[in-house]
Simulated scan of single mutants.
Amino acid sequence: MIQVEHLCKTFRVANRNAGLKSALKALFHRQYREIKALNDISFTIPDGEMVGYIGPNGAGKSSTIKVLSGILTPDSGTCLINGRVPFQERKAHVKEIGVVFGQRSQLWWDVPVIDSFELLKDIYRIPKNDYQMMKEELTFLLNLEDIIKT
């Protein structure tokens, strides 16, 4: 049985602008913001039940699975799987589970999204005007303004 009650997880992420000047500045003065990945998640899955866990990007699906598999420790709340707390009894827990994460990203975790886009633009030789037009359109359509510099 899987029992999850009031699970919360927050991440602290660095924020900076694109470019070498901003990278050098960030070495001495980092700005951070907090992202609530899980906010009071609760559910129970009885033995033998088959479920799907779906939601939009950023909804906390991967973070939930990482807590369930013992990869992440929640900030608060409880998670009990077959009588075990996954992150406290990880070795015994992982002997009984299997987890597959899909879609490897084209983005690098340690640079802002915009820097990844700029590098890919150069790798794929996308003309500057085409790139700028597509970047602006997709940033607006996909509501990326808040994360493009993260």
Rank of each mutant, 00 (worst) to 15 (best):
M50C: 12
K121D: 00
G102Y: 14
Q103G: 03
L119N: 01
S62D: 02
V111H: 00
K91E: 14
I97Y: 02
V51D: 01
I123L: 12
E136A: 15
F101C: 07
N17H: 12
D47M: 11
E145K: 12
D47H: 13
C79R: 00
H29R: 09
V67Y: 00
E118K: 11
G19N: 06
F87R: 04
A59E: 05
L80I: 12
G83L: 07
T73A: 00
N17Q: 14
F28A: 05
L120P: 00
Q132P: 04
Q103M: 09
I97V: 07
P74G: 00
I54W: 01
I41E: 10
L68W: 00
L24M: 13
N39K: 10
A59M: 03
H29F: 10
A92S: 14
A23L: 07
N39F: 01
S69A: 08
P46K: 12
F28E: 04
N57Y: 12
I54M: 02
L24W: 14
I123T: 05
E89C: 06
L142N: 07
G58E: 10
V100Q: 11
G58F: 05
V100G: 04
A14G: 11
C8M: 01
T10A: 13
I97Q: 00
Q106M: 11
S105K: 09
P74C: 00
I97R: 01
K21W: 13
K135D: 00
R125F: 03
L144A: 09
F28S: 05
R125G: 00
T64V: 09
W108K: 06
R90F: 08
I147Q: 13
R104G: 15
M134G: 04
I81T: 06
E89V: 10
G55S: 02
S22W: 05
G19A: 06
P46I: 05
Y124W: 10
Q106R: 10
I45V: 14
V85E: 11
Y131K: 09
K121A: 02
T44H: 08
I126V: 11
D47F: 10
K128Y: 04
I123S: 02
S62C: 03
R33V: 15
L107A: 02
E137G: 01
V85I: 15
I35V: 14
D40E: 10
I41T: 09
K25H: 14
L138A: 05
S42D: 08
R84T: 11
I45T: 03
Q88M: 08
R30H: 04
F28T: 15
G98T: 13
Y124I: 01
N17Y: 10
A23N: 04
S63C: 05
Q31R: 08
Q132L: 09
R90D: 09
A92C: 07
R30S: 13
D130H: 13
D40G: 07
V85T: 15
T10L: 03
D122C: 07
P86K: 00
N129E: 15
A26Y: 05
S42V: 04
D110N: 15
V99T: 07
